[in-house]
Measured scan of single mutants.
Amino acid sequence: EDYYQILGVPRNASQKEIKKAYYQLAKKYHPDTNKDDPKAKEKFSQLAEAYEVLSDEVKRKQYDA
Rank of each mutant, 00 (worst) to 15 (best):
Y51L: 04
Y22N: 01
A65F: 07
Y29T: 04
Y23W: 09
A21S: 08
D64T: 03
T33Y: 14
I6H: 04
Y29M: 09
N12T: 13
A40I: 15
Q24R: 15
K41C: 09
K19Y: 09
A48T: 13
T33V: 13
G8P: 00
A40F: 08
S45V: 12
D64A: 02
E57G: 06
Y22H: 04
D36S: 08
D2H: 06
P10K: 12
N12E: 12
Y63F: 05
E1G: 14
E49Y: 08
Q62E: 14
D37R: 03
Q24W: 15
K16Q: 15
R11D: 04
Q46H: 09
P10M: 07
E52W: 05
R11E: 04
Y51P: 00
V9N: 00
Y22G: 02
L54Y: 00
S55E: 04
V9F: 01
K27L: 14
K16W: 10
I6G: 01
A13M: 02
K16S: 15
Q62W: 09
S55K: 11
Y4D: 00
Y3G: 01
K16L: 14
N12C: 10
E52T: 10
V58Q: 13
Q24F: 13
D56T: 02
D32P: 05
V9E: 00
Y4G: 00
Y4S: 00
T33S: 11
E52P: 02
K19G: 07
K59M: 05
D64R: 01
L25N: 06
E52C: 09
K28L: 13
K16N: 12
K41A: 15
I6Y: 05
D37P: 03
A13F: 02
R60K: 10
K16V: 14
N12I: 07
V53Y: 04
S45H: 12
K19M: 14
A26F: 15
K39Y: 12
D56G: 01
A26M: 13
L25P: 01
V58P: 04
K20M: 15
Q24I: 14
A40S: 09
A50F: 01
N34D: 05
Q24Y: 14
L7T: 00
Y3M: 04
S14E: 06
Q24C: 09
K59S: 09
Q5F: 12
Y51G: 03
Q46D: 06
D36A: 07
K43W: 08
S45N: 09
K20A: 15
S45A: 15
K39F: 13
A40Y: 07
Q46G: 05
A40Q: 07
